[in-house]
C-alpha cells in the first residue's frame, strides 16, 4: 500500500444511475476518490449534484450501478449483505441532517443502537452509551426522549450514536443543516475532536465557513468532482490512538505543502 498513510476508501469509475433508458439519470458519473485514514473531507456542491448519493454508496446503504468501491482494499461488491450490515454497525457511523433518532426510544438507547447489531449485552451497551453521552455533556439527559431535546442536543446525541461503536469512517450529511450558528459550532467542535482522535470523516455541507475544519475540500458538480483541495498533508493526518504504535517508524517529515488538483 501507500508508503505514507493507509488508504481506507478507494472509488474507481463509480457510477450511480437512476431509472432506465430515456428516463435514466446519473447521480454519480465515473467518480474517482481515494480517502486516507484520518482525513476530514468536506463535500460541497449545488443541490442535486449527488452528494447524498455518494455518502449512501460509501456507507453501504446503496450499491453502485458500475465501477469499483474498495473498502479497506476489499471490493464491496464481493461482501455479502449480512457482512455489509455488520460493517455498517462496526466500521461506519452515520450522521444525518434531520438527526434520525428513533422517537420512541430514550436517548441512551438511541445511542446504543449500533451496539445492538454488533453483539453487545444490554448492560454493556448502556454503559458504553452512557460513557459517550457523558463526553457530549448529555449524561443527565440520558433517559429523555428525542422530542424533549433541542435540535443541537439531538444532533450531539446522533453524533454520539455515530461514534459509539468506534467506527473507522464517519459520514455526515449536512449535520449542521438544521442548526443555528451556536449549535453548529458546538457540533463542529465535536466532529473536530473526533477527527483529532484519528477518525476519518466525510461530511457534506452547504456552509463554506465550515471548511476550515477540514483537511480536504471537494466541490462536486453533476455527479463528478469539480475541485479537490487538500489543506493538510497525508503524513500530518491525525493517527488513531490505538494504532499509533503499529505505524511504521518512517517519520520522514514531508513538507507541509498544499496539493491542488483540478479536474
Amino acid at each position: 500500500m501507500s508508503e505514507e498513510t493507509e488508504t481506507i476508501i478507494k472509488l474507481e469509475n463509480l457510477t450511480k444511475r437512476f431509472g432506465y433508458g430515456d428516463a435514466a439519470s446519473y447521480a454519480l458519473k465515473d467518480f474517482d476518490l481515494t480517502v486516507k485514514r484520518g482525513e476530514f473531507i468536506m463535500i460541497m456542491g449545488p443541490s442535486g449534484c449527488g452528494k447524498t448519493t455518494l455518502l449512501n454508496l460509501i456507507g453501504l446503504l446503496d450499491s453502485a450501478t458500475s465501477g469499483v468501491y474498495r473498502l479497506n482494499d476489499e471490493p464491496v461488491s464481493r461482501i455479502s449483505a449480512r457482512r455489509q450490515a455488520r460493517l455498517r454497525a462496526k466500521k461506519i457511523g452515520f450522521i444525518f441532517q434531520n438527526f434520525n433518532l428513533i422517537p420512541d426510544l430514550p436517548i441512551i438507547e438511541n445511542v446504543a443502537l449500533p451496539l445492538v447489531y454488533s453483539g453487545y449485552h444490554k448492560t454493556r451497551r448502556l454503559i458504553r452509551a452512557s460513557e459517550i453521552l457523558d463526553r457530549f455533556n448529555l449524561k443527565e439527559k440520558e433517559y429523555y426522549f428525542p422530542s424533549q431535546l433541542s435540535g443541537g442536543q439531538q444532533q450531539r446525541a446522533a453524533i454520539a450514536r455515530a461514534i459509539v461503536a468506534r467506527p473507522e469512517i464517519i459520514l455526515a450529511d449536512e449535520p449542521t443543516g438544521n442548526l443555528d450558528s451556536h449549535s453548529s459550532a458546538l457540533v463542529m467542535s465535536e466532529l473536530s475532536r473526533i477527527h483529532s482522535e484519528g477518525n476519518t470523516i466525510i461530511m457534506v455541507t452547504h456552509n463554506p465557513s465550515l471548511t476550515s475544519y477540514a483537511t480536504r475540500v471537494i466541490h462536486m458538480l453533476d455527479g463528478s468532482i469539480d475541485t479537490d483541495i487538500k489543506t493538510v498533508a497525508d503524513s500530518d493526518l491525525p493517527v488513531p490512538v490505538e494504532k499509533k504504535n503499529r505505524r511504521r517508524p518512517k517519520n520522514k517529515k514531508k513538507s507541509n505543502r498544499k496539493k491542488k488538483t483540478k479536474k
Binding site: 456507507g59 446503504l61 449483505a81 449480512r82 450490515a85 455488520r86 460493517l87 455498517r88 454497525a89 462496526k90 452515520f94 434520525n100 433518532l101 428513533i102 420512541d104 443502537l113 449500533p114 445492538v116 447489531y117 454488533s118 450514536r161 461503536a165
Partner: peptide, 16 residues
C-alpha cells in the same frame, strides 16, 4: 418504516 431505515443505517441486517 423510518425506524427500520435508521436501524438499517446503523447496522441492522435484513435478518435482524
Amino acid at each position: 418504516t423510518h425506524e427500520i431505515g435508521i436501524r438499517k443505517a446503523v447496522g441492522a441486517s435484513t435478518g435482524n
